[in-house]
Design a protein around this nucleic acid. Structure first.
Length: 705
RNA sequence: CGCGAGAUAGAGCAGCGGUAGCUCGUCGGGCUCAUAACCCGAAGGUCACAGGUUCGAUCCCUGUUCUCGCUACCA
């Protein structure tokens, strides 16, 4: 199909923290490149994005910092928006889901589905914090882990041993927000019948997108569809969000994942009165740029919503990228293991394109990739600067030295094979880069551009105009050759500016200024031409496009990462000016200490069968960071116990140790291994674990009482 | 556990049925217009492991191992 217009969306960043370079590499930079390219092709394209400002984590953060949710999103919306603007991410609009237009749009969307009788109403019991007056997601219930005894396990998972839990399993459950004991309360929600769209989605994706979508995206969708879809609640109990537009829905808001993608629509509405052209006309190409964690929402849930509503175009493609690691480790916002865009901009002023280059050249297009500062330095210094920057500089310097600062003519009578080959390379580069971008292969596209500069260097080297200038007796003939060489090098430089423009817009701009051409030269249709610079046209003096990244800058950045890591969680939050130690936050810390448990009788204690055992074998459990599988000699039997202590002990160090075991704890399967018992551990204030063992060797299986 | 994606020279990636390729790094040479830069050459890989299909497999099939995601913060 011939598309008349393009609508490009980039995932709405959650206004709960700043953006880091992983966000850029995964989503915003590829989207921006794609859009800049489309604009250069003079295609009708709109690029929409905005802050996602709803959802429980924002209310929690607000509560912790003692401010309103609005304060939280205002603060981060500004930081995020500025970071994008400074990096040259060229949204046509950067909106926010807290705007009225978005509330109206998402409510209207909901109402339409409601009036069509689509939603199923269901009542269920949810945990409720009576002190704070809010319903609690599993994550916000804290209690003692039934598996490893960690007193601060979450309702969905124990961080200590990695077991996945449900709130019912926690011993002494308490609210993460107030420490109140959560109670169950009935609540009603509206469910979207995803299952009714299963067949249609299979047809659309599994059959229709087989060879179009990236393998990671396609595979993920197929996996979801094969395992069957369930109705999904589209409302939540909260006061922060878009109110459910129904009379009996006090205290209910739309589920963030219902309202967030609709944010793309509202942003488009805010941008233009012609918004419906982009959302409803069949000949619009809708492309969602996202990271891999968002695949199901953009490929399954949102399309199902659009289909259910009717009248909307569906995404033509969802080129999700994988993740970018930093210095070999996963990005973690809570541990502050990330390179924040706002900080990069401060540390490397006027170096946006250096980052854009590295992130694109090393983009996680097919698998997770690693960002290291050393690699950043290498790529900037030896590719961007040495190949591209240096070529451009050589062309300018030589032109000023050998051609009097003016664009020399091209003499047809002395054209060489090398000249013609270079012209062919220039024309071919356009074709290659175009094909790459259309297929979302931005890494390859950028490589092909640098490769063109590489060819330019070789051509210059082989032509060696500086040598030709040294033989005055052949002056007339040689000057023609020199002219041709530099004419072509300069036309090549102009072509590089056009091709680079979507990727490195700041650089393309600088190049235009140096060549004294208007920005219109950057129109894509001009790529491949070798008459972009007029003969005899005087050009500006040479000036370097890029500077090198010094060794000490690399060291500084790596040290900064490690230093910030130590302060872990609070580092980023403490930069918030207002609320450093609100009463609320202090209070919370006190309550984190283990709470005294109620008195029990001797009979309660007698229910426990505590025994001594010796660790015979210990090995790491696969696919679990924190679990060790232990074989214990219990005297009369050998038992398998899975224990969440892998972060504290190496398997080989604990073999032979005697330990105390809760022998009659109900068996529990973890990561497919049945654990029959639990090892007792003391936990220090710093979180360190210590075995509770007999001081002298006891018989295996002897009772502890 | 299950499902999905990945594993190819020191690093980063491409190839996906017919003698293993690119970029960076390393080593040697050339050039000197240029940001100690550019150009040429070389070394460096039993294509994760084990089976199978095939005349032939890095590529197809089966099994295994490891990494990442689906699972908090998070693209």
């Amino acid at each position: 199909m011939e598309f008349k217009r393009y609508l490009v969306t980039a995932a709405l960043p959650y206004a709960n923290g700043p953006v880091h370079i992983g966000h850029l590499a995964g989503c915003y930079l590829p989207a921006d490149i794609y859009v800049r390219y489309q604009r250069a092709k003079k295609r009708d394209v709109k690029f929409v994005c905005g802050s996602d400002e709803h959802g429980v984590p924002i209310t929690i953060r607000a509560m912790k910092e003692g401010i309103t949710p609005q304060d939280v999103v205002d603060k981060y919306n500004t930081i995020i928006k500025d970071s994008f603007a400074d990096m040259g991410i060229s949204f046509d609009i950067y909106s926010r889901t807290s705007k009225q237009i978005h509330h109206d749009t998402s409510q209207a969307f909901f109402t339409k589905l409601y009036n069509d009788g689509l939603f199923q109403e269901r009542e269920s019991e949810q945990y409720y914090d009576e002190a704070k007056g809010i319903f609690l997601a599993d994550r916000y219930i804290i209690g003692t882990c039934p598996v490893c005894g960690n007193p601060n396990a979450y309702g969905d998972q124990c961080e200590n041993c990695g077991s996945s839990l449900s709130p019912e399993q926690l011993l002494n459950p308490r609210s993460a927000l107030s420490s109140a004991i959560p109670v169950k309360r009935k609540t009603k929600h509206w469910y979207f019948p995803l299952n009714q769209y299963e067949e249609w989605l299979k047809e659309w994706i599994v059959v229709g997108k087989k060879d179009e979508w990236k393998p990671n995206v396609y595979g993920q969708c197929k996996s979801w569809l094969d395992s069957g879809l369930q109705p999904r609640a589209m409302t939540r109990d909260s006061t922060w969000g878009v109110p459910v537009p129904l009379p009996d829905a006090e205290g209910k808001v739309l589920y963030v994942w219902f309202d967030a993608p609709i944010g793309y629509i509202s942003a488009t509405k805010e941008l233009t009165n012609q918004w419906a052209d982009y959302w409803c006309k069949e000949d619009t190409k809708l492309v969602h740029f996202i990271g891999k964690d968002n695949i199901v929402f953009h490929c399954i849930i949102f399309p199902a919503m659009l289909k259910a509503h009717g009248g909307f175009v569906l995404p033509e493609n969802v080129p999700a990228n994988e993740f970018l690691n930093i210095e070999g480790e996963k990005v973690s916002t809570s541990r502050n293991w990330a390179v924040w865009v706002d900080e990069y901009l401060k540390d490397f002023p006027d170096q946006q394109d250096a980052l854009r280059y590295t992130l694109c050249a090393n983009a996680p297009e097919t698998k997770d990739n690693d960002f290291t500062w050393k690699d950043f330095q290498d790529r900037v210094n030896s590719e961007l600067s040495a190949i591209l920057g240096n070529f451009e500089n050589r062309a300018f310097v030589l032109m000023h030295k050998l051609c009097k600062g003016r664009v020399p003519p091209l003499h047809a009578d002395v054209m060489s094979d090398a000249d013609n080959a270079l012209i062919a390379d220039i024309k071919n580069a356009k074709v290659l880069v175009e094909a790459d971008i259309e297929r979302y292969k931005f890494r390859d596209a950028l490589f092909n551009i640098i490769d063109l500069a590489r060819k330019g260097n070789k051509y210059l080297q082989d032509s060696a105009p500086w040598s030709l200038a040294k033989t005055p007796e052949l002056q007339l003939e040689n000057q023609k050759k020199i002219d041709n060489c530099l004419h072509l090098c300069l036309q090549l430089t102009a072509n590089l500016a056009i091709l680079l423009n979507p990727f490195l817009p700041f650089t393309a701009n600088k190049m235009c200024k140096k060549m004294k051409v208007v920005e219109r030269m950057l129109d894509w249709e001009n790529a491949g031409r070798i008459d972009l610079l007029k003969v005899n046209y005087p050009l500006n003096a040479p000036a370097l496009l890029f500077r090198k990244i010094e060794d000490d800058e690399v060291t500084t950045q790596v040290e900064k990462l490690r230093a910030n890591l130590k302060n872990a969680t609070s580092a980023k939050m403490e930069q918030a000016p207002k609320q450093e130690s609100t009463p609320e936050a202090t209070q919370e810390k006190v309550q984190e200490a283990p709470v005294a448990k109620p008195e029990i009788s001797i009979d309660d204690f007698a229910k426990m069968d505590l025994r001594v055992g010796t660790i015979l074998k210990a090995e790491k459990v696969e696919k679990a960071d924190k679990l060790l599988k232990l074989e214990l000699d219990m005297g009369t039997e050998i038992r398998t116990v899975v224990s969440g202590i892998a972060l504290h002990f190496k398997p080989e160090d604990i073999i032979g140790k005697q330990v105390t075991v809760v022998a009659n704890l109900a068996p529990r399967k973890m990561r497919g291994i049945e654990s029959r018992g639990m090892i007792l551990m003391a936990q220090n204030a710093d979180g360190r674990l210590i075995f509770v063992s007999p001081l002298e060797k006891a018989d295996n299986g002897s009772e502890v009482r």
